[in-house]
Simulated scan of single mutants.
Amino acid sequence: MEKIRNLSIRKTIVLYMGLNLILSYGLSFVIIHTANDAQQKIWFRYIDKDRYYEAMENKGDDYEINITRSKLNSMTKTDRVISELCDFLDTYSILVISCLGTIIAVLLFYKHKIQIPLGELKEASARISEGTLDFSVAYSNEDEMGQLCRQFEKMRCQLEENNKKMWKMVEEEKALRSAISHDIRSPLAVMEGYQEMLLEFLPQESVSRDKIMKMLEAGMQQIKRMKAFINTMQKLSKLEERNICWNQIDVADFIEIVKNNTVILGKKAQKECHTVVKSDQQSVYFDSEMVLEVLNNLIGNALRYAREQVYVEVDISGDEMRVCVQDDGKGFQEDAELLTKAYYHGNPQSDLTHFGLGLYISRVYCEKHGGKLLLVNQDQGGEACAYFKLKT
């Protein structure tokens, strides 16, 4: 039954029509034979039985005895109707039964092969037109309609994914506009305050030269902050356009680069960095620049919040790379989704060069590389784990 249910539409049509022909001709044969027998019995009532029995006694091999058709006016009304009905069945039963069989075969074909998947597709189309995408098209047959339903389900999943990405982009754009407004407004407010003080006190020469120089230096710091912010905006605008460059990377060389980068960043921050690398591959394909930028971002972020030590673990296994960076600080104080948003940072005034893009860029690069970024709190501090899909 399972094989019949999974037959292609063409084979199913041939099967249904073949069965229809066999059953139609078989049933027609039975009906015609039965009608002839009934008609012969009716005619037998109106023949000369003495001559019939005499003929039967003298019957030879060179001839056969047939009961001749009786005249209709010699029959009773009931026998006449039955005889005419038998004539009709003898003449048209094949045609009538074949037509009825074809209609039944078409209805069964529609019910078993078309109706259910067509209903699924019709309902799915209606829900998509209403903007609802949280459902699934479930039709497990392996025929053409099953393939069509699976393709439709793939399209629905893609639409749902694109819809989520679109809303995510809208939310990120809102947050980005809010962050940009805040990070530009703050230095402008500081510079405006200094300018007002200079305009008020400079004409009266009531402010010292040292004070003026401090105001100008503070204003230059805010200008540098705004220039750095504009540079980050330019980098952010090119982030989505970045494509993965699948290059064959020697794992031993990559490990050496990771260890060197970790040592350099640790010395610069005057904190200890410990690196552990595991690999069961000699060479794999991935975007080394993208992975190293994520690694540097995670190490730099960990060094900013670590008390004394940072632990880096790189694990290359099969078709996946896992990069985990843990610090001995207080851990993450906010939700991971909030921390990986663009321009999010705890205290905007604490660092003029930090604009909260490190984790955001790392998350985007991980997703571009077929992976993800996870932020969790461990017993000794916060840990960021980046996952990347590899090609072997």
Rank of each mutant, 00 (worst) to 15 (best):
T262R: 00
I94S: 02
I257G: 04
I9T: 03
S186Q: 06
K41E: 13
S237R: 13
F109A: 05
Y311L: 03
Q349E: 05
G358V: 04
E367D: 05
E64M: 09
R225T: 06
S83T: 11
S283P: 12
C245H: 08
D183E: 08
F254D: 03
R51K: 06
K165W: 06
H354Q: 06
F229L: 07
L359P: 05
Y52E: 01
G318C: 12
S208D: 05
G331K: 02
K174I: 08
L357G: 01
S208R: 03
Q326W: 00
I116W: 09
V277C: 14
G358T: 03
E192A: 05
R307V: 11
R177I: 14
N162S: 11
G119Q: 09
K267G: 08
K49F: 10
D62T: 12
M75L: 09
G18R: 12
S129R: 10
T78Q: 14
C99A: 14
E205K: 15
V251E: 05
L15S: 01
A126D: 06
R225Y: 03
A218V: 01
K330V: 03
T78R: 14
D351H: 03
M213I: 15
Y53I: 13
L108F: 10
Q221H: 15
N243E: 12
I128E: 07
D90Q: 11
L21S: 09
A126E: 11
I316L: 13
R209T: 09
Y285E: 04
I82R: 08
K368I: 02
L89M: 08
D48N: 13
T353P: 00
E205W: 08
A336C: 07
R80V: 05
E123P: 00
Q151V: 11
F29A: 12
R322W: 06
D351Y: 00
D62E: 10
Q333V: 04
L118V: 06
H369K: 11
W167G: 04
L292A: 01
T78P: 00
V96W: 09
L89Y: 14
I255P: 00
G329P: 00
K165G: 08
R242K: 09
V376S: 15
D327E: 03
G119E: 07
Y305K: 09
Q281K: 13
Y110R: 05
I316K: 11
R363M: 12
K168A: 02
P203R: 10
